[in-house]
Amino acid sequence: MAMWLMLSCCCRIGEVIQSRWEHVDLEAGVWVIPKENAKNRKSHTIFLSPVALKKFQELKEISTNENGASGHNRKHTRLHEVNNQASA
């Protein structure tokens, strides 16, 4: 899943791994990468393609089940934790 997000959003693996649900607005189709997570230390907004939006929606569905990412609040669950759960 992380690879699809990297390819569809043209972002780095570190940006995907450090992402949190609070950075993603599925209704608006936007992912904001905060400056703390960006290589150039500048915040930037990614307008999600249909493919990227679908992948984020799939991750969101996985994170809401009771086996979701380490028992953290869904809003604060890192996406790579959900990705690891999905591949297990």
Rank of each mutant, 00 (worst) to 15 (best):
82 V>C: 13
63 S>L: 04
71 G>E: 01
81 E>F: 05
83 N>P: 02
51 V>F: 05
50 P>R: 08
57 Q>M: 14
44 H>R: 10
78 R>F: 09
63 S>K: 06
51 V>G: 02
67 N>S: 13
86 A>S: 07
46 I>A: 07
67 N>H: 13
47 F>W: 13
57 Q>P: 01
82 V>W: 03
69 A>V: 01
77 T>S: 09
83 N>Q: 05
77 T>L: 06
74 R>I: 05
51 V>W: 02
54 K>L: 00
86 A>D: 05
80 H>F: 08
68 G>W: 14
53 L>W: 03
57 Q>V: 02
58 E>R: 05
58 E>T: 01
66 E>C: 06
86 A>Q: 04
74 R>W: 06
54 K>V: 00
62 I>C: 13
60 K>T: 00
50 P>S: 03
73 N>G: 10
55 K>N: 08
57 Q>G: 04
55 K>S: 04
42 K>W: 07
63 S>M: 01
60 K>N: 10
69 A>R: 09
69 A>W: 04
70 S>D: 11
52 A>K: 01
75 K>E: 13
64 T>I: 12
50 P>G: 04
83 N>A: 14
84 N>G: 14
84 N>K: 13
61 E>I: 12
74 R>C: 02
49 S>L: 03
67 N>Y: 13
85 Q>E: 08
52 A>R: 01
83 N>F: 11
57 Q>K: 14
80 H>L: 04
68 G>N: 13
63 S>A: 15
46 I>F: 12
72 H>N: 14
46 I>D: 05
59 L>E: 00
79 L>V: 15
62 I>K: 12
61 E>A: 10
53 L>M: 06
71 G>V: 07
74 R>F: 05
85 Q>N: 03
48 L>T: 07
42 K>C: 15
85 Q>V: 05
42 K>T: 14
70 S>V: 05
52 A>L: 00
76 H>Y: 09
79 L>H: 02
78 R>M: 09
65 N>R: 14
80 H>C: 07
83 N>I: 15
70 S>R: 15
84 N>I: 15
69 A>C: 04
66 E>A: 15
56 F>N: 02
46 I>M: 10
84 N>T: 13
57 Q>I: 06
67 N>M: 12
55 K>G: 06
74 R>V: 07
74 R>S: 05
57 Q>L: 07
58 E>K: 10
81 E>A: 11
